[in-house]
């Protein structure tokens, strides 16, 4: 592996800073700044937490609905089926994350294998 692959160029690292680091740290530091006066059990916090959960849910849906990279090569039905199968097992196993993830993966890999 070459040093270019290991280290890369400064331009790419500058892009990381502008498009990756700053957009994330802005929200964290705003949270630090404005969170100071907010009480743990306040109604505003219940709303804010609900919005945070819903935005994360949106990211989950986005990766499945508009998949990146190699996942785009998996048919829609297999991706949705994998999430659905994982969810069923997750609920049946009294919320075992491990069982849900493994089921989803096995469903997708088995489907890929079966479809050829």
């Amino acid at each position: 592996m070459s040093s270019a692959q290991l280290i890369g160029d400064w331009h790419a690292l500058a892009v990381l800073f502008v498009a990756g680091v700053v957009p994330n740290q802005i929200w964290r530091m705003l949270g630090l700044w404005f969170g100071g006066g907010i009480d743990e059990g306040s109604e505003l916090l219940v709303w804010v937490r609900a919005v945070a959960t819903a935005i994360l849910a949106g990211v989950i849906a986005q990766i499945v609905v508009e998949p990146p990279g190699a996942l785009a090569g998996v048919p829609d039905s297999l991706r949705y089926g994998a999430v659905a199968a994982g969810l069923v097992v997750f609920l049946l196993t009294r919320r075992s994350i491990f069982a849900g993830v493994v089921t989803g993966e096995v469903f997708m890999l088995a489907g890929k294998w079966w479809l050829g």
């Binding site: 498009a19 929200w27 964290r28 949270g31 630090l32 969170g35 916090l45 945070a52 935005i55 990211v59």
Partner: peptide, 26 residues
């Protein structure tokens, strides 16, 4: 473009705001 990526990341990172707000009081 860098700007398009930055917008997408900024939006995805909004959820960090309420997380920080809710976790720091603990």
């Amino acid at each position: 473009t860098i700007v398009q990526s930055a917008i997408a990341v900024t939006v995805s990172a909004i959820r960090l705001f309420p997380m920080v707000v809710s976790v720091l009081p603990l």
